Each structure stands twice: as C-alpha cells, then as structure tokens.
Simulated scan of single mutants.
Amino acid sequence: MPTYASFDGFRVELRSRDHAPPHVHVVGADFHALVGIRDLRIMRGTITRRALAEVVAWASGRTDELMAEWRRLNERD
C-alpha cells in the first residue's frame, strides 16, 4: 500500500479503490485504524493515543491536500 507519511512506529496510507467516506489508514505494529480526513476522527479500528495525536497534528493542516490525493486515487470511471 502507498505510504503517505511515516512516523516513529507507524505509517499513514492512502489506498486506491477504497470506500467512502474519505479516510487514511494508520498502521502500526499493534494497530490499524481508519481516520476520516474531514473530521480526523477514528472511523474504525484501534490506535494508540500517541499515534492518533500525532496523526491529527500532522493532518490538521493538510486536509485539502489529503482530500485531493484521496480523490485522485479513488476516481471512479
């Protein structure tokens, strides 16, 4: 899966042919969560508090960029 960002111990992925609503996958050794791009809330899965805080801080200023990339990867014919 394409890694969009890497942190100490986990990564943020944007996947093609993914389902709505727009989200990122946050994947660590012991967790995998889907975090909504628009509201930066956990949609599904588990995640550590530290990882969630880092992702929210990182993504909060990049939501437009993340939405554009999600749309590009998930265009429907």
Rank of each mutant, 00 (worst) to 15 (best):
L14M: 11
H32F: 06
L34H: 11
I42K: 03
I42R: 07
L73I: 03
A59N: 07
R76S: 12
F31I: 00
F31M: 00
S6G: 10
R15L: 08
T46R: 15
S6Y: 02
W70C: 03
V26H: 01
R11W: 02
G36A: 14
R44M: 10
N74Q: 06
D39A: 15
S60M: 11
L66W: 04
W58E: 12
H25F: 13
W58H: 15
V27K: 01
T46W: 04
H23R: 11
T46F: 04
M43P: 04
H25R: 02
P21K: 01
R71N: 13
I37G: 08
G45D: 01
G45K: 03
R72L: 15
S6E: 15
V24G: 00
L14D: 09
L40K: 09
M67T: 10
L73W: 06
A33R: 00
A29L: 10
A68Q: 15
A57E: 13
V56C: 11
M1T: 06
M1D: 07
S6P: 05
H25E: 10
T3V: 15
R71G: 09
D30F: 01
R11C: 10
R71W: 09
N74W: 03
D8K: 13
R71P: 02
V35L: 07
V55N: 09
L66M: 11
T3W: 02
I37W: 08
M67H: 11
T3C: 11
T46H: 08
F7S: 08
A5L: 05
D30V: 01
A59I: 00
D64Q: 12
T3D: 06
V56I: 13
E65P: 08
A33H: 02
E54I: 03
P22D: 14
I37C: 07
R38G: 12
V55C: 06
M43L: 14
T48S: 10
D64A: 14
R41A: 15
A20P: 11
T63N: 03
L34W: 07
G28I: 02
V27D: 01
W58R: 14
T48V: 02
R72S: 14
A51N: 04
R11K: 13
A5C: 06
P21R: 01
E13Q: 13
E54C: 04
V24C: 08
H32G: 00
R72F: 14
